[in-house]
Design a protein around this nucleic acid. Structure first.
Lengths: 146, 146
DNA sequence: CATGCAAAGGATAAACATATCCTTTTATCT
DNA sequence: AGATAAAAGGATATGTTTATCCTTTGCATG
């Protein structure tokens, strides 16, 4: 339910977080994340504008995380490229509803709230710290035993 | 986070549920729900194909709910027009990940699961039974006192 | 300060979602 | 049977998201 663009942004940020000091070029991130390079450049632009990443031009330039992964919720990344929008008033524009949503739109909005909460409480650091069989972006060598 | 089409489908079903025996024509539903009539006809077609609604052609025809609102989760409506898709295997197609999602995609998928659960446990009857200030699709006369 | 590297930004294209219109099919009522 | 009502379905248009390409700007180094 998140957009392709948001998924790309998350991958890029996770990539940068693996090596918080090294500046990664668009081309490098594209290779790691398997995101189309030229599209990724737009995504990174948006992340830079929202100060999720910091960019440096020229030789040895590239992108670096602008935030400590501990303090960087996935929500911030998503909102930078494709803001989660809540239902604030009746989509039918019924005058008597206004900001008092009916049960239908309350429910739909509840689902949006839940998503937002989950992404707000999930930091980039958390994604990297909890080990599983699969390491983000990595063709790991972990082998499942039979 | 649900599509416009899914929102339209939910409105249509809620409309039908208000009067489970009366066949509503596309034009009538469009008027109540404020959904573009010709687009709505496609949406209703999909709902009919998935047996969420029953359609009857000709004079006095129209659409009727095919399910008891008590047993009709919003999820069924949504899935009829715009199926919720889970992440089942690594979007990067990393061979070593396969069906073992990394933490990132586990989280993203978790958010999808949560949404699905909410919509699975919310029936159409529930939407109509819990009264609030705003009645679905209706310009109610309830007035907020100052 | 000239050269090369890399991001910034603009213009365009392709794919998909949303929306409109028109014809065909099927049912109902005289 | 003929007329009418309404869904089914096809063709097309508009808008948004995703993707590609090319030029410009800014930085680092020799």
């Amino acid at each position: 339910m998140i957009s392709q663009t948001a998924e790309y942004a998350l991958r890029a940020v996770v990539c940068l977080a693996q090596n918080p000091d090294k500046p990664y070029t668009t081309a490098e991130i594209a290779r790691w994340t398997k995101v189309p390079e030229h599209y990724l450049s737009k995504v990174l632009l948006a992340l830079a504008k929202h100060e999720v990443v910091f960019s440096k031009k020229g030789l040895h330039g590239g992108y670096v995380l602008a935030q400590d992964p501990e303090n960087l919720p996935l929500l911030n990344v998503i909102n930078a490229v494709d803001p989660i929008k809540h239902i604030k008033s009746c989509p039918l524009k019924l005058k008597t509803h206004g900001a008092n949503l009916c049960r239908l739109h309350q429910r739909v909005n509840e689902s949006i709230d839940m998503m937002e909460d989950l992404f707000r409480t999930s930091t980039v650091a958390l994604i990297l710290s909890e080990p599983t069989q699969s390491i983000p972006l990595r063709e790991s060598i972990t082998q499942v035993r039979a």
